[in-house]
């Protein structure tokens, strides 16, 4: 199993992405997945090393052309949405490594 680096992105890397990180950490814990989660901001996100990114629709434009999976989340407080959109790919990438 590979320990994935999962990046959460918002404008400043302080607020929305922090909330998204908390929701994702809860999902990972509930599903017994060990991954590193970290926040980044609009200015520096593209230069970070990561395996998968979760962000809003607006911020997802930063990653056009990226070869990494970009998961667009509408409701940052919804564990159900994060699980539905992200769990399968997180499991798959964890197992590949």
């Amino acid at each position: 199993m590979k320990k994935l680096k999962i990046m959460l992105v918002c404008g400043f890397g302080l607020g929305s992405s922090m909330i998204l990180k908390m929701t994702l950490d809860k999902v990972l814990k509930n599903n017994a997945i060990n991954a590193e989660t970290f926040c980044s901001d609009e200015a520096t996100a593209r230069g970070q090393f990561f395996d998968i990114v979760f962000t809003s629709e607006e911020m997802s434009k930063l990653f056009h052309g990226s070869d990494k999976p970009v998961i667009v989340i509408k409701n940052f407080l919804s564990s159900a949405e994060l699980e539905e959109k992200g769990l399968e790919i997180i499991r798959k990438l964890s197992q590949e490594g």
């Binding site: 918002c10 404008g11 400043f12 607020g15 929305s16 909330i19 998204l20 609009e42 809003s56 629709e57 607006e58 911020m59 409701n75 940052f76 407080l77 919804s78």
Partner: peptide, 12 residues
């Protein structure tokens, strides 16, 4: 910030 970065601050 909302002008510059868009209305992503509506988190839910």
């Amino acid at each position: 910030a909302s002008y510059d970065l868009g209305p992503y601050m509506v988190i839910s």
